[in-house]
Simulated assay, not measured.
Amino acid sequence: MDADLSDLETFVAVARARGFRDAARATGRSASTLSEALRRLEARLGLRLLHRTTRSVAPTEAGARLLERLAPALDSVAAALGSLDELRERPTGLLRLNVPVSAAKLVLPSILPGFLAAFPDIRVEIDAEDSFVDILASGADAGIRYDERLEQDMIAVPIGPRVQRFAAAAAPAYLDRRGRPAHPRALLDHDGLVGRFSSGALASPWEFERDGEAVRIEPRARLIARVAGAADLLVDAAVGGGGIVYLFEEWLAPALAAGLLEPVLPEWWPSFPGPFLYYSSRRLVPPPLRAFIDHVRTLG
């Protein structure tokens, strides 16, 4: 027998309150609305559920039997829905992010510790790679990508630095030995330390720009290392005097600050917009992801 859940809830509310007025106050609905819902339910069931007088309401035998079985079930439904409210207020569960290696090293370290401290019931799993995958197909809740890699049907939220630069650097001893380039084209006479993506493509050409002039250089690669797993090896090789390395400025910053590397052509370093957290607009946002998005936005 079919019955509308709202009408069943009305029956339980009126039966428990032993009257339409008290039930109306408890539910926030009018007494006439509750009365109409009860009549509709009784007509559908073909049974009278409540005896009504001008002063009181009492369950019939059928009503008492239904109330005995139905009330605990509706209480369970209410408790289940209440647990979802708790989930919104105190998110829990797993958050999976698919990110480029550069974001795992340069963006997330300043964000994740505060997020994990603020939401102790959320676990985070990071898939860091240098290829571009479909986050939905990979099972990730969201990803981090740069503007040119974002899909049109995705929602994007700025995350991390809003402007970044690529930087070139080498050990002072290497530059003393091989000379300090005065123009990007002079890099063709130097040894390049170059990354390779998992697709097989080299992380080149190296791009430089100044005063409207853009220069693209294919360096002479003396050392090639896969970006995903060995970018730090390129930095170490540069520190050891192996050649010139070209990476995110933040990646080279510790070695530059320590004097282990010297900037090469810093006035030519190109800047570009920072990354975005992106996720599908085609589904409800899971509570762990919603909490992460809100946390990212609070960081400005």
Rank of each mutant, 00 (worst) to 15 (best):
residue 170 A to F: 12
residue 114 G to W: 06
residue 107 V to G: 01
residue 100 P to C: 06
residue 142 A to M: 05
residue 130 D to W: 01
residue 149 R to D: 15
residue 146 Y to T: 04
residue 118 A to E: 14
residue 121 D to M: 06
residue 107 V to I: 15
residue 126 I to T: 04
residue 97 L to I: 09
residue 104 A to Q: 13
residue 134 D to H: 14
residue 118 A to R: 15
residue 166 F to H: 13
residue 155 I to F: 08
residue 166 F to T: 05
residue 135 I to F: 13
residue 147 D to I: 10
residue 162 R to Q: 14
residue 125 E to A: 12
residue 146 Y to D: 07
residue 125 E to Y: 01
residue 156 A to Y: 08
residue 144 I to R: 00
residue 167 A to K: 02
residue 141 D to W: 05
residue 107 V to L: 03
residue 112 L to I: 14
residue 122 I to R: 01
residue 140 A to D: 05
residue 154 M to F: 11
residue 113 P to I: 06
residue 105 K to N: 10
residue 96 R to C: 01
residue 113 P to V: 05
residue 155 I to W: 00
residue 157 V to E: 15
residue 146 Y to G: 11
residue 161 P to K: 12
residue 121 D to W: 01
residue 129 E to R: 15
residue 109 P to S: 10
residue 138 S to T: 14
residue 100 P to N: 09
residue 168 A to G: 13
residue 137 A to R: 15
residue 159 I to N: 03
residue 101 V to I: 15
residue 169 A to W: 08
residue 125 E to G: 00
residue 150 L to Y: 04
residue 173 A to R: 14
residue 164 Q to W: 01
residue 173 A to W: 08
residue 146 Y to F: 15
residue 141 D to V: 06
residue 147 D to K: 11
residue 166 F to S: 06
residue 121 D to P: 00
residue 162 R to K: 14
residue 151 E to H: 13
residue 113 P to Q: 07
residue 153 D to V: 01
residue 138 S to V: 05
residue 167 A to S: 10
residue 170 A to W: 08
residue 104 A to F: 10
residue 106 L to A: 13
residue 114 G to N: 11
residue 152 Q to K: 13
residue 151 E to A: 12
residue 163 V to P: 00
residue 122 I to D: 01
residue 170 A to K: 09
residue 124 V to F: 01
residue 135 I to E: 02
residue 144 I to T: 04
residue 128 A to H: 03
residue 168 A to M: 02
residue 171 A to D: 02
residue 138 S to A: 14
residue 116 L to V: 11
residue 135 I to W: 00
residue 104 A to W: 05
residue 127 D to F: 11
residue 119 F to Y: 15
residue 131 S to G: 07
residue 167 A to E: 03
residue 129 E to C: 03
residue 157 V to W: 06
residue 107 V to N: 03
residue 160 G to D: 09
residue 115 F to H: 03
residue 103 A to I: 08
residue 139 G to T: 04
residue 95 L to P: 11
residue 104 A to E: 12
residue 164 Q to S: 10
residue 116 L to N: 03
residue 117 A to R: 15
residue 127 D to I: 02
residue 142 A to G: 04
residue 141 D to K: 03
residue 111 I to F: 05
residue 149 R to N: 13
residue 135 I to Q: 00
residue 173 A to N: 11
residue 126 I to E: 02
residue 151 E to D: 12
residue 110 S to F: 02
residue 124 V to S: 01
residue 165 R to A: 13
residue 173 A to E: 15
residue 104 A to M: 14
residue 112 L to F: 10
residue 116 L to M: 14
residue 168 A to Q: 05
residue 140 A to N: 07
residue 167 A to Q: 07
residue 103 A to Y: 03
residue 170 A to G: 07
residue 100 P to R: 07
residue 160 G to H: 05
